Computed example of a mutant assay.
Amino acid sequence: MNIKILALLLLAFCAQPAWSQTPAASATAVDSPALTTRLALRDLWVEHIFWIRNYALANQAADHAQAKIAADQVVDNASKIANSIAPLYGQPAADQLLKLLAGHWDAVKHYSDATVGKDTKGKQAAVAELTSNARAIAAFLASANPNLPEATLVNMLSAHGGHHIAQIDEFAAHDYAGEARTWQMMRSHILALADALTAALVKQFPDKF
């Protein structure tokens, strides 16, 4: 499997570096296929945080039926995100991306479940999972692409996980005003992730866009 290709695929799961913002904007402004891709990926990634939020809220309220539906939607959304890159990179790469997304979801779910169960050690273990996942992806991306500083990627990936953690904690504390602020930050961040993926795709496959 081509490591550089996977690095580009996973760019959607890292924060948008400052140098990618202008190219993304300029590319999508003049290129309809790029704009279509950007909007589609934005929708998919907003669904990612939307359904995880629904799971966390239902889980906190002990609404097991809704929590299951939300969890199923998280998995379905992850499959759609992964399969969206199959036409460009092939199904094996899409399957690998799905495994990485599954690892992220597992860690967030573990944190939510541990919070509901008041399991301090479980919460700590879940944070360790998220941290390990962020570092692994950052190291992978940095080794594949010298233009992606590993330290920056670790910080940005950790911020995404941190939004999930903050949101779950705020639900547990019934701090809905705080959660509203977190949601706004989370949404802005996830849109930046989607735009970063678009920028990477346009750069890697200019003939397709």
Results as ranks from 00 to 15, higher is better:
residue 28 T to R: 10
residue 30 V to F: 13
residue 31 D to V: 04
residue 33 P to L: 08
residue 35 L to T: 01
residue 36 T to D: 14
residue 37 T to Q: 09
residue 39 L to S: 07
residue 41 L to D: 11
residue 45 W to E: 05
residue 46 V to C: 09
residue 49 I to S: 10
residue 54 N to S: 15
residue 54 N to D: 13
residue 55 Y to L: 15
residue 59 N to W: 06
residue 64 H to L: 14
residue 65 A to R: 12
residue 66 Q to V: 06
residue 66 Q to Y: 06
residue 71 A to F: 05
residue 72 D to A: 12
residue 73 Q to K: 15
residue 73 Q to R: 13
residue 74 V to Y: 01
residue 74 V to C: 13
residue 75 V to N: 09
residue 75 V to E: 12
residue 79 S to A: 14
residue 82 A to C: 07
residue 83 N to M: 13
residue 84 S to N: 11
residue 85 I to G: 00
residue 91 Q to R: 05
residue 91 Q to I: 05
residue 91 Q to C: 01
residue 93 A to V: 01
residue 96 Q to D: 11
residue 102 A to V: 03
residue 102 A to P: 00
residue 105 W to Y: 14
residue 105 W to T: 09
residue 105 W to L: 12
residue 106 D to I: 04
residue 106 D to H: 09
residue 107 A to R: 08
residue 107 A to H: 06
residue 109 K to D: 04
residue 110 H to C: 05
residue 111 Y to V: 03
residue 112 S to Y: 05
residue 114 A to F: 05
residue 117 G to E: 12
residue 118 K to R: 12
residue 119 D to T: 06
residue 124 Q to P: 03
residue 125 A to W: 02
residue 128 A to L: 08
residue 131 T to S: 08
residue 131 T to A: 08
residue 132 S to Y: 01
residue 133 N to S: 12
residue 136 A to S: 15
residue 137 I to T: 12
residue 140 F to R: 08
residue 141 L to S: 01
residue 142 A to Y: 00
